[in-house]
């Protein structure tokens, strides 16, 4: 099943006189149960792609298959509610997602919409909140009193509470401090390993996802220009530059050191420590 986009195109027609291209012949096949990093410069079509995943945006052309749904451009029928339950979207701005009087009510919003009973929903909310590391005391508070990091966690929990099979997050680490960033990435990684969920992370910072993602998708001008593993990406750093992104400094340095030593570059050193380990290993050989 998984996710498959076949030659999907979409144009924003409501933003002024000239239509803006969102996706242009977007072609991508993803398997379930993996963590996928979607990289691209601002305006490359990352968020547009994300919103296609649960039918918030309907493609102008092409065929999208997600789980066992087929979203056809031709028939613009109603999106089944079950698709929105099975594909959860966390938006870029958590402060625009939370609206109820208390955090708990907000987290309940999704599960109740998808027809869970009150008890089931409350249980799902507790699990989701503890999963993202949101203090239970905060549940009774107004979402507008949360710090931006707590808001981010609440927004992720609000989507997780509906128990989606595919979780797609738009820039989830923005507005988080480095420690919380690490923490969130580890928890999300746990979703794929522990629970077999598919996690898509949209970002323009490769270094944050480098250590966790199984697959990398690079988007430029509404097209997929790279899809592969970390190892493949290391050998094709020019792809990142072409997409208007910066390769992480550890990755650039690994490339230079490898060239100097005349060996293959490291798989993808996530940080300076990993790079140092690899380099030490090379020197011992």
């Amino acid at each position: 099943m998984g996710i498959s986009f076949e030659e999907v195109s979409y144009c924003y027609r409501d933003r002024g006189m000239t239509p803006i291209l969102g996706l242009d012949g977007f072609h991508l096949k993803l398997e379930e149960g993996r963590m996928i990093a979607v990289l691209g410069a601002p305006g490359s079509g990352k968020s547009t792609f994300l919103q296609h995943l649960n039918g918030l945006i309907r493609a102008d052309e092409g065929v999208i298959r997600i789980l066992d749904y087929r979203l056809d451009s031709a028939e613009k029928g109603k999106i089944p509610a079950s698709l929105r339950q099975r594909v959860g979207l966390v938006f870029q701005y958590p402060e625009l997602q939370l609206f109820e009087e208390t955090v708990e009510k907000d987290l309940l919003f999704g599960p109740l919409n998808f027809g869970r009973s009150k008890d089931e929903a409350a249980e799902a909310v507790r699990r989701a909140a503890s999963f993202v590391g949101l203090d239970e005391e905060l549940l009774a508070q107004s979402p507008f009193k949360l710090s931006s990091g707590q808001m981010r966690k609440a927004a992720v929990a609000a989507v997780l509470a509906a128990d989606p099979e595919i979780l797609a997050l738009d820039e989830p680490t923005a507005s988080l401090d480095p420690a919380s960033r690490e923490d969130l990435m580890q928890r999300l990684h746990g979703l794929t390993r522990g629970q077999g969920k598919t996690v898509l992370i949209v970002t323009h910072r490769l270094e944050e996802v480098a250590a966790y993602a199984d697959e990398f998708v690079v988007i430029k001008d509404g097209r997929v220009i790279f899809h592969g593993t970390a190892r493949e990406l290391v050998h094709r750093q020019e792809v990142l530059e072409h997409a208007g992104l910066m390769a992480p400094s550890s990755m650039r340095m690994a490339g230079k050191l490898a060239a100097q030593l005349g060996v293959q570059p490291a798989e993808m050193p996530a940080d300076a420590a990993a790079l140092a380990d690899w380099y030490a290993g090379q020197l011992e050989l």
């Binding site: 918030l56 929105r84 938006f91 919409n113």
Partner: peptide
């Protein structure tokens, strides 16, 4: 959009709930 993706479907709600939701959505 964020609420729709969390299953918001105004058409299935009774009028009173519909009004409450619209007002609540204006808060943020």
């Amino acid at each position: 959009k964020a609420q729709q993706s969390r299953g918001l479907d105004l058409s299935s709600q009774p009028l009173k709930e519909k009004a409450r939701l619209i007002i609540a959505l204006l808060v943020p």
